[in-house]
Amino acid sequence: MMSDRVLGGVGLALAVFYAWAATIIPEPFSSDAIGPDGFPMIIALVLGLSSVYFVLKPDPEPQWPSLNRLAEIGFALLVMFGYAQVLPVLGFVFATIIITAYLTWRLGARPLTAILNGVGTSVGLFVLFELIFGLSLADGPLGF
């Protein structure tokens, strides 16, 4: 119940924000019948109406994971954000070893298996995509 109400609230805020953002679209020099803001306004309306429906008639509460599972997902998310940031710094191979080992470990493997999978995945994908297929993956200080 509550989750859907929250979704409705967020959706409603989003709809209002979207409609406001549509009003500040600069006026083009030559415009057509409904202009660049007409259709976005309709979309904001649909977004808003469906959000109101969630608030008024929410579905039964979904099964949220326990707090530690939620933290698990949060940490994985942080690691992925971190990966995107350090990729150009560390280079593909090292960054990928770290993230793959982390994810493997958190998905339930023993630490040694996790490190092996990290190294194997990283080197394997590097060989496959950069050396064989010639994609340019992020290069680190050592050139890989």
């Binding site: 793959t100 998905l107 493997a109």
Partner: peptide, 12 residues
């Protein structure tokens, strides 16, 4: 096992 596979999928 999934814990080997899913990280590979994510990396791809």
């Amino acid at each position: 096992p999934t814990h080997i596979l899913m990280p590979i999928v994510a990396m791809i």
